[in-house]
Design a protein around this nucleic acid. Structure first.
Length: 534
RNA sequence: GCAGCCGUAGCUCAGCUGGUUAGAGCGCCUGACUGUGGAUCAGGAGGCCGCAGGUUCAAAUCCCGCCGGCUGUACCA
């Protein structure tokens, strides 16, 4: 930075450092808030499509859309710590203008129960609605887990029978298939909280052990039988990483016999609903709640069978717990059963839900049964992406019209309109720079076709259209051919020049047609890459 | 939250036991090849060496704290 120097190289090191610091103005770093992310166009469009597809299924079953605000009073959401006057952690909260605590919603179910309680008179039950929206949770972000994500909910309020639960289960299954997830590649897993409660009763689990036990059972898929056994008994030390140790998790302290009773049921293979019903029948004979739950499952099995929904779509799985949530009856979980690509993490559940009969009564004191489920849109989308089931170019404009010579601007604009009228999204290049730059732009933005016409074409009433993807393939071939040119520099240079000439002359993937055939030609190119799904 | 590992250019990383202007590959930008993305060639931009302290004549390198990332675990309405 300074011209003069020399002299004393042996000291004065710290000083220039400070000067440097002062010189640079403090600019904000363009960083993202922890746990949040941008959504690139491809993802956004794919997400929108997914929501549309599923919504259509929902509507076909009589569900209607509803939107509630992103912010609710904290006590409405049910997150309140009366002791400290401060809301519990885990959610985004702040004090609103009238000195009351508000929060960003952490799910769509709590706001729904608020809505129902508020409008109960006019609504009439059963009330079916679906809702897609962002929810926010202030938790530790992890790969695939963010502080803002999208849920797609479906609920029936005011229907107490398992017919409502069956409806939810059916719609979830239909939704998966509408998204192109083949039967057999997903599984709707069903269980019942009453059955679980009965099981705990039979096993002689104390009131204060219930939470720990349920949590432990919920971890079967991740920790395996041995891990769960430890958590039910003395406790478990996690693997940590590297040199080990790790943290110790306290167990429920159950006896061997109790553990055996629990595991005997929970480890029952999920295939065949009748097997589930059989074992539950044997185990729960002594438990009132258990038998209630069993009766629900029996009826669910009947209803589903009547609907023609067999075990290849909906299974009964005693291992489904669904956390400590507010569920009171049947609980559902949807998992993808595609084989996991080598070494990657399993897909996990992409949707979940169940019956919650106490949520509205929080407000009204009146018991209003409800049942529903929520699809984790981002997670499901990520899974489909990993499986290559999402068109990576979705949302990208397919056609670019190059601004070859400004004098033909009017013509280019006319063509653009013509293509749009034919239903083809078309972009007119509005940047600066020559053709080379425009092609680079087209390449990076992943256009499928470029319309290019200068004086040469226009004089003949013609137009050139280049298939970019085809061109890319063709040019890859020439690149290979010149790889073995040898070491001789001179030869290599002429070879390169020749390549250049050949490349320019070949105009790979490009055709020149009569102006009148523009639309058809473009359509033809786009048709080559049309994916069958969309 | 707890525990362990990690933090050098946009990306992947090099920089030995502290020693003068911190490097590479890829990517990016400009230009050449006279209307075409590839290839080739010539230039170029870009680093508070995560942040803030400390030890030292001297720190990207050693020590401490914080922040951030990864992994496991806890929580997950």
């Amino acid at each position: 930075m300074s011209e003069q120097d020399g002299g004393a190289p042996e000291q004065g090191a710290p000083r220039p450092k400070k000067q440097k610091k002062r010189k640079k103005p403090k600019r904000p770093v363009p960083r993202l808030a922890r746990g949040f992310r941008d959504q690139p166009p491809g993802k956004l469009v794919a997400r929108r499509k997914m929501i549309e597809t599923v919504s259509r299924v929902y509507e076909s079953y009589g569900f209607t859309p509803l939107e509630t605000p992103a912010i609710e009073y904290v006590d409405v959401l049910g997150k309140f710590l009366p002791e400290s006057e401060t809301p519990e952690g885990g959610i985004f909260t702040w004090k609103y203008d009238d000195d009351e605590w508000v929060a960003l919603r952490y799910d769509l179910t709590a706001p729904l129960s608020r809505y129902v309680a508020k409008n109960f008179q006019e609504l009439g039950v059963p009330f079916r609605r679906y809702q897609a929206g962002q929810v926010w949770r202030l938790e530790k972000p992890e790969p695939g887990r963010f502080r803002e994500f999208t849920q797609l909910d479906i609920d029936i309020v005011g229907a107490g029978s398992v017919l409502g639960d069956a409806e939810i289960v059916t719609v979830l299954s239909e939704a998966m298939e509408a998204l192109g997830i083949e039967r057999g590649s997903y599984e709707v897993r069903l269980n019942d909280r009453k059955v679980l409660n009965g099981l705990l009763e039979v096993a002689g689990v104390n009131e204060d052990q219930v939470a720990t036990v349920l949590r432990a059972l919920d971890k079967l898929d991740r920790l395996g039988e041995e891990g769960v056994r430890l958590l039910l008994g003395p406790g478990r030390k996690d693997a940590g990483s590297g040199k080990g140790e790790g943290d110790f998790t306290k167990g429920a302290g159950l006896g061997d016999e109790q553990i055996e009773t629990l595991l005997r049921f929970v480890l029952t293979p999920a295939e065949g609903r009748s097997r589930y019903l059989e074992i539950a029948g044997e185990l729960l004979a002594e438990s009132k709640v258990g038998l209630e739950g069993l009766a629900e499952m029996v009826e669910l099995d009947e209803i589903l069978t009547e609907r023609g929904i067999e075990g290849d779509r909906v299974v009964f799985d005693p291992g489904v717990v669904r956390g400590l949530a507010y569920y009171t009856g049947p609980v559902v979980e949807v998992v993808l059963t595609y084989p996991v690509p080598d070494g990657q993490k399993p897909f996990g559940s992409v949707a979940g839900g169940g019956r919650y009969d106490d949520l509205v009564s929080r407000f009204t004191g009146q018991k209003v049964p409800a049942t529903g489920a929520s699809i984790g849109v981002d997670r499901l989308l990520d899974a489909l992406e990993r499986l290559g089931k999402v068109e990576p170019r979705s949302g990208m404009c397919p056609v670019l019209i190059a601004m070859v010579e400004k004098q033909y601007r009017a013509t280019y604009q006319r063509w653009a309109n013509q293509l749009r009228e034919a239903g083809i999204p078309t972009e007119l290049y509005v940047g600066s720079g020559g053709l080379g730059k425009q092609f680079k732009y087209a390449d990076r933005r992943q256009f499928t076709a470029v319309v290019v016409a200068g004086g040469n074409e226009i004089a003949e009433d013609q137009v050139s259209v280049k298939d970019l993807r085809l061109g890319q393939e063709l040019s890859a071939d020439t690149a290979v051919s010149r790889a073995n040119a040898g070491e001789d520099e001179e030869a290599a240079r002429t070879q390169a020049a020749a390549d250049r000439r050949a490349w320019l002359e070949a105009l790979p993937g490009q055709v020149t047609v009569a102006e009148g055939d523009l639309t058809e030609t473009v359509k033809g190119i786009l048709a080559r890459y049309q994916s069958p799904s969309s």
